[in-house]
Design a protein around this nucleic acid. Structure first.
Lengths: 137, 137
DNA sequence: ACCGTTCCTTGGACGCAGTCTAAACACAGC
DNA sequence: GCTGTGTTTAGACTGCGTCCAAGGAACGGT
């Protein structure tokens, strides 16, 4: 597994301390995280970064594909360390997000016809009630 | 076509001037609109309503299915007058939202397996560049 | 190792989306 | 009409994300 430093360099972006820190924090926490969760985590680990920087980094890293922005509908955006194309299940009750494997595995996994437009991605959001919210109702 | 008054009454909700106004404004504008666009439209037509009311009404009407909340990712939520189950194409450049017919036509149109969870809806977001942004680049 | 250019980071202020609260109001059944 | 309950309202408030301009750091060339 190539180090994150190299993976950032390979995209043409500069390797900065901040980018590595944010990526590491996201990978260490795992799952789907908001920008503010990352700010807190970095804060707690003694390597605090300003909010604006975390937003910048997440933006940059997701443009080059090292980080994915998980669609969840309106509200705070959630990010995850890139790990292949997949979809998401969102709980209507608690808002939890779970990965759902993509049957096809590459983009765009579904096709449709919008006249004149170029489609490069089809993101599916499954909505319902998750296991723990069902038992807890 | 039953009047909107009756359609609201049929859901068990009370028929109020505000609900009718908001629904009419949304239907008249057509397409996908943010809450604030509706506030402005109502304002312009001489029947101004407070923001909080528009939010309340949109919330109520979308819970009972008379209005649909179109998934578009993070950012302002957009609503449309309900017109059958369908998906959305979102332009990466201008953010425009277009309807995409659902191949199946009823929910959930795609199925998957999330252990323990109940899935009642699968919303697909197609992303790419729309016709006018492609010619304008 | 140094330099210069270009890219990146930073902090603070700002703007927009949406929620909350408590009091006034109005719909709908009697 | 009267009454009870669901709804509206204004305004303040929270949270997410962006913008700006100045300082700082990465990296290719020498």
């Amino acid at each position: 597994m190539t180090s994150i430093d190299e993976r950032i360099r390979d995209t043409g972006l500069r390797v900065t301390r901040q980018r590595v820190l944010v990526y590491d924090a996201l990978a260490a926490l795992g799952g789907h995280r908001t920008a503010d969760e990352l700010v807190s985590a970095l804060d707690a680990s003694g390597t605090a970064l300003p909010r604006a920087t975390v937003y910048n980094v997440l933006d940059d890293l997701s443009t080059v594909g090292l980080v994915m922005q998980a669609d969840r509908g309106p509200g705070a955006a959630v990010y995850e360390a890139a790990n292949g194309w997949h979809h998401h299940f969102v709980c209507r009750v608690c808002g939890a997000v779970e990965d759902v494997p993509c049957v096809i595995g590459s983009k765009p996994c579904i096709d449709t016809d919008v006249p004149g437009a170029v489609i490069d991605e089809a993101q599916i959001i499954f909505r319902g009630v998750c296991a723990s919210c069902r038992t807890a109702d």
